[in-house]
Design a protein around this nucleic acid. Sequence first.
DNA 1: GCTTATGAGCGTACGATGTACACATGAGCA
DNA 2: TGCTCATGTGTACATCGTACGCTCATAAGC
Lengths: 186, 186
Amino acid sequence: MSKDRIFDAARAILDHEGIEGLSVRKVAARAGVSTMAMYRHFADKDALLNALMDDGLAAWEKVVRAIRAEDPMEWLEAVIEAFLKFALTQPHRFDAAFFLPAPEARRYPDDFVAGRSPVIAMIMVRIDQAKADGRLGGTPAVDVALALAGMAQGLVSMQRAKRFSSDKQFRTLFRAQLRHCLQSFS
Amino acid sequence: MSKDRIFDAARAILDHEGIEGLSVRKVAARAGVSTMAMYRHFADKDALLNALMDDGLAAWEKVVRAIRAEDPMEWLEAVIEAFLKFALTQPHRFDAAFFLPAPEARRYPDDFVAGRSPVIAMIMVRIDQAKADGRLGGTPAVDVALALAGMAQGLVSMQRAKRFSSDKQFRTLFRAQLRHCLQSFS
DNA sequence: GCTTATGAGCGTACGATGTACACATGAGCA
DNA sequence: TGCTCATGTGTACATCGTACGCTCATAAGC
């Protein structure tokens, strides 16, 4: 379908030029279609961006599902490492997934748990496993998950705002901070 | 000077309409000056935004300097509370200060310490005081400061991306997480 | 005093952007 | 044959950042 062609073009442009560089005209040209054709399939540019956000989150979920570590703590550390890799190797798709404003429909209605993404659910399962093994303390899994997600997002956000001088420095600090954050709950 | 008039107009528009709503034309109109007059005083729009970032950071520094708590741990908690208040009551100025990309000149050259903002320096002094009192463990002050800053920035970034359903929920989670983060170093 | 250089401001114009609107085309069905 | 509906097009408009060249007042150098 032509909707797919338009979306694929958008994703290609996102990957190469980032959210800033993505214009409706460029997407249409790349899809070999008129500028206004996009509006037949997406309400407006924001709707297209939301689709890219979904796509980015799906890609992230796939990455997490591919992690094979048995031990829950090892699994959690692998997720941290995967998040770092995702942010550094696919920065634009990462931006779309984690920094774009979420549409009303996918806000968290009551608290951080409800309506949460599958990835957070998986993380909470592993946290509970680790707690059952006595490797993590009594803090509710939600709070641990939020701490990890918050710290990770914060450091990446700082890196995006050019608050570090190099990727190498960022990588080192990210690993150290996340590791400490996780261990602070044990 | 007319540079000040232009800058004041920019700050007023930032406060009312946010970074998205700030256009050169609007600024000029508000300053009662032609559109191109801005370019006599700022190289381009980014230079104006950088000036707004400086202004926001200066405002934040002033807030922190006004904190009067004697006890270092109380002082640190007051900073956390002030950060939350700043983010919620002056969201656009906060955006300019903490989410705008920093120009090359003010990146952190070697590590997170060097070239750091006065506020981080003040925070590190208090952390060291708390360590001297035996209220915080042996983790270097830089790492503690980065943890606090990272967690705070991450949670605010999530709230900006509409990841929470209400300010109230955000406020509660923010306080709990930051408090835990600080205590995890003691 | 006269000339000239400098700095501030202005008006116009260009290309890019998001998108409203009216229209064309063609497939499925009555 | 005529109707509806989904899909796509082309034109047009407002808004954006900003390049370019002009005016004009003030200050410096002779």
